[in-house]
Design a protein around this nucleic acid. Sequence first.
DNA 1: GAGTGGTCTAGACCACCAT
DNA 2: TGGTGGTCTAGACCACTCT
Lengths: 252, 252
Amino acid sequence: MSTDPVWPEEMFSDLDRTGPVPLYYQISSRLERAIREGVIPAGARLENEIAIGERLGLSRPTVRRAIQELVDQGLLVRRRGIGTQVVQARVSRPVELTSLHEDLTRVGHHPTTEVLSVEHVAADEDAAARLQVPVGTVISRIRRVRSADGTPMAILENLLPPEFADITAADLEKQGLYEMLRARGITIKIANQTIGARRTHGDEHELLDIAKGSPLLTMDRVAFDHGGRVVEAGHHCYRPDLYSFETTLVSR
Amino acid sequence: MSTDPVWPEEMFSDLDRTGPVPLYYQISSRLERAIREGVIPAGARLENEIAIGERLGLSRPTVRRAIQELVDQGLLVRRRGIGTQVVQARVSRPVELTSLHEDLTRVGHHPTTEVLSVEHVAADEDAAARLQVPVGTVISRIRRVRSADGTPMAILENLLPPEFADITAADLEKQGLYEMLRARGITIKIANQTIGARRTHGDEHELLDIAKGSPLLTMDRVAFDHGGRVVEAGHHCYRPDLYSFETTLVSR
DNA sequence: GAGTGGTCTAGACCACCAT
DNA sequence: TGGTGGTCTAGACCACTCT
């Protein structure tokens, strides 16, 4: 048995077969938007891969790859012998290789950053281990407070290797750290993150405008470029009443 | 230019071309083990896809898929025009659709579970919303304490829809909840997780043997089967000095 | 038995990077 | 200029599910 098309006729009428954007990506991103906006409703059954391919003039592997992207995101479910369906559950976007600054902007908040300090210091043993540089190397240590719509949300402490010694406080007020690195042609390929919790220490409660000793949500991250070099090491603490980490897990 | 083989000659000598295990999976899992065990060292360059295919008697798409699995896991990095390399950074396994019970077992700890209560109650508004059942439906509410090697690590509160009303405390002492669901043929396809932090409430500090009002790491999860039905809704709190969430993020 | 997704093959052309 | 991964095609066979 086959299924009627569940998307508007013209949805894929303007595929660009010559440009740099892969066909599978054009398909999957259009489909993703239609699903997230509800144009294709939860529970809807898609046509089978071959039928879609014929309608769009694409080979089956290309259609398949587009669909697989959405399966990996948790938007679609496939079962052999059954078909492909739009998932019923609400799906959150995965934790991504972006900064808090970009996260907030995307959600429509207005993030501001106060740079508390930009120091150039000799790496102690701990910092050297995290950045994978020799002890004593002169590194940059940044401390910032990020607010959304005027409310302090997080304290961001970052360590940078020597090559970024010229980054200034003024730069960091305007852009997120990751934007700035990207503008310098630095591509972050991999990051290891650890999410935990602890009490406030030192002046953290003042900076975040919460009670002394109250809980903080923490995230430690080490980011690497394609060559395996450490680009950045961060220790962030978030106000747990204002911030949490959401993920959607998909079984393989 | 081409590269010398970086893995032992016999590593892929016993591929099973008739069994149910996909060839790409046989390749990727063997490669993963070799990388994690250091048999293939960090920074090593792999041969190109076509050469590997010829050596193993496989087509390029099959080899490519095997490699892609490891790229998605953050173990390999590929760059066009350059080649494929083993990543230098330590890579942690991603947060998975498994239970804490299985996580601990895998790391070699001995998890024990104390079942505090198994109740069958009418769902209030909050519980009904989380399980997506009508208010007043009789659901199961489970409360457990999980310990590793005798130390309490987490309080696990779970809500189950009516179909699991027959699960007993005795069952839960022996197996993780997820194992039990799997044994009943329930496949969890998707889960939404939120990780946060808060202070202890009520008797939580006693159960976890920590100070009253101290920080907890929390994880809320709603798990769905392939049909979008809610299988389980959980609220877990962890001792932040004993537990944290690790992830490796990979840029696409 | 009919229909579906899962896997695999054998090619092709292109964009990017190094030399 | 040669080597690499990125994309795409046009088939094929199989395993699974429903009726």
